[in-house]
Computed example of a mutant assay.
Amino acid sequence: MTSKAQAPRNVIFNGDCIDVMQAFDSGTVDFILTDPPYVTRYRDRQGRKVANDDNGRWLRPAFREMHRVLKDGGFAVSFYGWNKVDLFMEAWKAAGFRVVGHLVFRKRYASSARFLRYEHEQAYLLAKGNPARPARPIPDVLDFPYSGNRLHPTQKPVEALTPLIEAFTQPGELVLDPFSGSGSTLAAAQQLGRDWTGIELDNGHYHTASKRLAARQHHRAAA
């Protein structure tokens, strides 16, 4: 009798997150923190794009798999594009998530300016089942230091992600990022002594994240 594969730990996969997550056991991930494409055809000042940002076909199946692999009573935090919130909300609810909180990340700079100066990012806190309330809930407004976007066109700062991982996981638990980009979520988890698993479709970003995590691990081991 063969045992089923558990969710892998401390590894990054280069592939489609829907396909990769299908190989994970149900309920084997403790926390999900992810920054998926915003479905806005984003292009930064250097002309860099984000894979699959031109369509929303992946939204429902990806979040359905995330809900399946997350443990019962677990949390997920998903960034989203404010002007596509209807698509994201439909996908989250169709997957079975409950919306239990909203997070705003305040910037000291404007990422762009049109009708307003856009000086924040946003994410929803999603729950599977009925999780216990944290002993010390964190604020729903957090600082968002400038990452420089050197490694990825929408690179998230590790400093903005560590409070979330610290609040919703314990050391040794597994943090999953199915849209891991340059690996900021994984770096934050590693820094806090959590296990991590990343999935990245873009081969270039996959290699960037792999090198980044290996370098951080080497630095920690040498310290």
Rank of each mutant, 00 (worst) to 15 (best):
A113Y: 05
A113E: 15
A113S: 14
A113D: 03
R114S: 15
F115Y: 13
L116E: 08
L116F: 11
L116C: 08
R117D: 09
Y118N: 11
Y118M: 12
H120K: 02
H120Y: 14
E121K: 14
E121P: 09
Q122N: 13
L126R: 06
L126M: 04
L126S: 03
L126N: 07
A127K: 07
A127P: 08
K128S: 00
K128N: 05
G129A: 09
N130W: 14
N130I: 13
P131S: 03
P131A: 12
R133V: 13
P134G: 13
P134N: 12
A135S: 12
R136I: 11
R136L: 14
P137V: 07
I138H: 07
I138W: 05
I138Q: 08
D140R: 12
D140M: 12
D140K: 14
D140W: 12
V141N: 09
L142G: 09
L142F: 13
L142V: 05
D143F: 02
D143Y: 11
F144Q: 02
F144I: 02
F144E: 03
P145S: 06
Y146W: 00
S147H: 05
S147R: 09
G148L: 02
R150G: 11
R150Q: 02
R150E: 15
R150I: 06
R150F: 03
H152W: 00
H152G: 01
H152M: 05
P153Q: 10
P153K: 07
P153A: 06
Q155I: 13
Q155F: 13
K156G: 05
P157N: 06
P157G: 07
V158T: 10
V158Y: 02
E159P: 08
E159I: 06
A160L: 13
A160R: 07
I165W: 06
I165S: 03
I165Q: 09
I165M: 07
I165A: 04
E166A: 15
E166T: 08
A167D: 03
F168W: 11
F168L: 13
Q170A: 14
P171Y: 01
E173A: 03
E173H: 06
E173G: 02
E173N: 09
L174C: 01
V175I: 02
V175G: 03
L176P: 06
P178W: 03
P178K: 01
P178C: 06
P178R: 04
S180G: 03
S182R: 08
S182T: 03
S184H: 08
S184W: 02
S184Q: 09
S184R: 02
T185H: 01
T185I: 07
A188Q: 04
A188V: 07
A188W: 04
A189K: 01
A189C: 00
Q190E: 15
Q190C: 04
Q190P: 00
Q191K: 15
L192V: 00
D195G: 11
W196G: 08
W196F: 14
T197F: 09
T197W: 00
G198A: 05
G198E: 05
I199N: 05
I199H: 04
E200V: 07
E200Q: 13
L201R: 10
D202S: 08
D202Y: 10
N203E: 15
N203L: 09
H205D: 11
H207L: 15
H207V: 04
H207P: 03
T208D: 10
A209I: 14
A209M: 02
K211D: 13
R212Q: 10
R212K: 14
L213H: 04
A214D: 12
A214R: 12
